[in-house]
Simulated assay, not measured.
Amino acid sequence: MDISITRVEKQGKRPEDSALGFGTIFTDHMFNMDYNPEKGWHNARIEPLHNFSISPATMTLHYGQTIFEGLKAYKTAKGEIQLFRPQENFKRLNSSARGLCIPEIDEAFALEALKELLKVEKEWIPETPGTSLYIRPTVFATDPFLGVRASHTYRYFVLLSPVGAYYAEGFNPVKILISKDHVRAVRGGVGEYKTAGNYAASLLASEKAKEEGYAQVLWLDGVEQKYIEEVGAMNIFFVINDELVTPMLNGSILPGITRNSVLQLGRKWGMKVSERKISIDELAQAHKDGSLTEAFGSGTAAVISPVGEIKYGDNIMHIGDGTPGKLAVKFNEAITNIQYGMAEDTENWIEKL
């Protein structure tokens, strides 16, 4: 499929790297592509960023049939532009598509289109370590129809945003709250897919957590509310008795690409690594007896985020000494050094433009 390119008449200016936050500034151009049953995916185009004009009956507004991804482009000290495991993002996008009855996208073409968009917007990619260009591929249903069924038509678009650190705390340990009153997803539902409804389901508990001074919610399973699953914007890891533990994928946990990277590196380094069920009771006991020595989250936005405090009911678990744990530091440095071209890509994770 050919990709048409229409450029803006006057190019915008990227803010100074030091002024970047997360997800509020967008580049001049975006990628768009449409789907209908007769043509399949068609009309691939890079064009100036613009608002969509849609019917108030558009199905995605009423039934939430939408999926998305999140990945980043990095600029190395040599000025090279590279992506971190983008094939995995498009593979996961198609997994989400299957789960929400959305037509799959050719993964190789999606990557080719993204590269073309990045070539157009290369001046928007920040250069300071810790900054990057956040990439948001999205698909949403476009049928104007008030009835519960899968849409027949869709729009795929890619939005770009230069970003700094995801958390205001930077790489300092964050505080997270385990919700006793709310659940995010259950096995057999859509918890393992990157779809908007999962995030909407997390908002109420997240707002309550913020009112108590906590950055995010750590979710328990939706059936027994006993087993730890994930944090709102990241997967979770614990170090217990020198074992790196993360909840096993069970259908209600997003299969994080950074999560997979941590597991792969941990095993390569000869660590004892486990993907298994871990209950809140086990975690509380490990904290009580001192065998819980570290906790951190993993995700595209923050990469690695040390966790310094977990609250569950009246039990407040302080982890470490208020500084990032040694393993969090090690994983963060290993992954970010590969992303920014400061270390050899021994895992074949980097895709260069």
Rank of each mutant, 00 (worst) to 15 (best):
P37A: 08
D289N: 15
P247G: 10
H318D: 02
E121M: 05
K268E: 11
I240G: 11
S291L: 05
T66Q: 15
K78P: 01
L177I: 01
A150Y: 02
S4G: 06
D28L: 13
K122H: 13
K288H: 10
H29W: 06
A113P: 09
I102K: 00
A113L: 10
S305I: 02
V262H: 09
V239H: 02
K194A: 09
G251P: 07
V245E: 03
Q65H: 03
I5A: 12
G341W: 02
D321Q: 08
S95Q: 13
I280Q: 04
P247W: 06
V120K: 02
F171R: 06
A150W: 02
N198R: 07
F238H: 11
G290Q: 10
L111M: 10
G79P: 05
A334E: 14
A110S: 14
I228K: 03
E112T: 06
K208H: 09
N32I: 14
A328D: 00
E107V: 01
E16S: 13
A168N: 10
A110V: 05
E351C: 09
G270A: 03
Q285C: 01
L203C: 09
L254H: 12
L160E: 06
L111R: 00
I304G: 11
K175Q: 07
Q264V: 05
E351P: 00
K13D: 01
T346A: 15
N89V: 02
H62C: 04
F171D: 14
L254W: 03
L20F: 07
V190K: 10
H318M: 07
T76M: 06
T27V: 14
S206V: 00
E38L: 10
T336S: 15
R187K: 14
A286V: 06
N94V: 11
L244R: 05
G313D: 04
E211Q: 14
K268S: 12
P126S: 03
